[in-house]
Design a protein around this nucleic acid. Structure first.
Length: 460
RNA sequence: GGAGAGAUGGCCGAGUGGUCGAAGGCGCUCCCCUGCUAAGGGAGUAUGGGGUUUAUAGCCUCAUCGAGGGUUCGAAUCCCUCUCUCUCCGCCA
């Protein structure tokens, strides 16, 4: 992610400014840059500072620009609505007068004068609102207070380490060598069919991947209380805006000639089920899961992880999504993380948990835990799940709400999502951690029932 | 792919240029009446934005009748484009 640091580090007191609607009304001095009738878009916005920089790296210009746009929006809207009201009153009068059979020419003349001005004003207003909306849509979420400050991914904080990486007494192979050695994994064939960053799996490895999917889903359905869905893999622009891929990350997606995009994660399909919905407060939290393929263009990742299945254009994932009450979302995040960890536990794979710092946290997230699994051949931990509390960030974009049972008013829900887990990478982890000297892959105990009792994939 | 029908509030359903944000019914909420059950009477019941305000109270206002444009002083109503749903035919896993 190349979100500028200063954007990610927006301080809490800017929160209201970044929210839509009334919530972004905040106390500030009158920006004097907007004299009515002046050029609305001077590129160098009036350089008056409304906020001091803080340790969270406040970029003053954001606040300024927001204040500026916001003020323009307000002025134009008030003025426009005044005219609209005038017009409406007159029009209503015409109806009444005509009903009485009276002459309306004088009123008609009055109203006609309103027209041009109104057209001009509403054009300006919609231009301002479009700018404001686009500006807001590109501002990332505000990190939660518990998120560690940082300058790069090196500042992520490890908060747990589970299991001990196995010590091998022989020269280990990576999953590519293992898979190709078995004759059950081919990047060449996939390149022939499609291109780079795709894979073909055969026989036991293909089955192993399917087994992992089934295994994960069963855990989440039977033990963690999720509800399973089958969802579209192609979605429209509204959905992508809702979960935050649009407008900023368009180029990370594959888009069809029909204008639909392939989902980069089931989070898009699942979370958008809540778009423009209002649920009863008692129904919360909702826990949803789906297995889907995921498609990512990996633009900007050229030369990164080019070998093997770690970074593919197409991969399988079991996704977990929560729709919850705002008061409950940080509890839910802990549960979500626990649910993802359970899968690693059962597979007896060593992993660690990171709390992402302000520099590494994603565009939408207020707080993120990454689970990283141990990959012997890379001699390091690699991300296998990312569990995030999005708070109201997506809900606001989607207008996903619940009805407050006390006030009767709709309020934004909080959304969370996490992988449970990334299946392709889990396959890699199983292969590499469970290999033996002959290049056989032993099947983790918990997975054997899903492999028809098979306990080892033999390299004959 | 061809032919046709449709999209209105939580639901059903009226409304083809004017006081319609929208009749009526159902549902829901509150109140009244009724010594049980049932029934009856009254009031209320969308969402979003903006202004005002100490206020997420109240008040004022704008927008929204699938979406977007247009005509008009004025559009749920007329015109255009699109999306979706349904019926019949064809094709198809």
């Amino acid at each position: 992610m190349e979100v500028p640091l200063h954007l990610r580090n927006a301080p809490t007191h800017l929160m209201r400014a970044l929210d839509y609607g009334k919530e972004y009304r905040y106390a500030h001095n009158e920006p004097h840059a907007y004299a009515a009738g002046e050029n609305y878009w001077p590129e160098g916005v009036k350089p008056q500072s409304f906020y001091e920089p803080t340790d969270r790296g406040l970029e003053v210009k954001i606040a300024e620009k927001m204040a500026f746009l916001r003020k323009l929006d307000e002025l134009l809207q008030v003025e426009t609505e005044k005219l609209q009201n005038e017009r409406n009153v007159h029009s209503k009068n015409i109806g009444i007068l005509k009903g009485q059979g009276k002459d309306v020419t004088s009123v008609l003349e009055q109203v006609n004068q309103i027209g041009d001005k109104l057209t001009q004003l509403s054009n300006e207003l919609s231009a301002v609102q479009e700018k404001l909306h686009d500006f807001c849509a590109r501002i990332p979420n505000i990190p939660h207070d518990s998120v560690p400050l940082g300058q790069s991914e090196a500042d992520n904080v490890e908060i747990a380490r589970v299991g001990t990486p196995r010590v091998f007494s022989f020269a280990i192979k990576d999953h590519v060598a293992l898979g190709e050695g078995l004759g059950q994994m081919s990047f060449d064939k996939a390149a022939k069919l499609t291109g780079s960053r795709f894979v073909v799996l055969h026989k036991h490895l293909a089955k192993l991947q399917r087994a992992l999917i089934q295994f994960m889903l069963d855990i989440h359905l039977n033990e963690h209380g999720y509800e399973e869905s089958y969802v579209p893999y192609l979605v429209n622009a509204d959905s992508l805006f809702g979960t935050g891929q649009f407008p900023k990350f368009k180029e990370d997606l594959f888009t069809t000639t029909a204008g639909y995009s392939l989902i980069p994660t089931a989070e898009v399909s699942l979370t958008n089920l809540m778009r423009d919905e209002i649920v009863r407060e008692e129904e919360l939290p909702l826990q949803w899961t789906a297995h889907t393929p995921c498609f990512r263009s990996e633009a900007g990742a050229y030369g990164k992880d080019t070998r093997g299945m770690i970074r593919q254009h197409q991969f399988e994932k079991v996704e977990l999504v929560w729709i919850c009450h705002p008061d409950d979302s940080y509890n839910c995040l802990e549960k979500l993380r626990q649910h993802a960890e359970t899968v690693l536990h059962r597979l007896e794979l060593p992993y660690r948990v990171l709390s992402l710092c302000t520099a590494d946290i994603g565009f939408c997230a207020a707080k993120t835990y990454d689970l990283e699994v141990w990959l012997p051949a890379q001699n390091c931990y690699r991300e296998i799940s990312s569990c995030s509390n999005i708070e109201s960030f997506q809900a606001r974009r989607m207008q996903a709400r619940f009805r407050n049972s006390k006030t009767g008013k709709p309020e934004l829900v909080h959304t969370l999502n996490g992988s449970g887990l990334a299946v392709g990478r889990t396959l890699v982890a199983v292969m590499e951690n469970y290999q033996d000297e002959q290049g056989n892959i032993h099947i983790p105990k918990a997975l054997q029932p899903y492999m028809g009792g098979l306990d080892v994939i033999k390299n004959i």
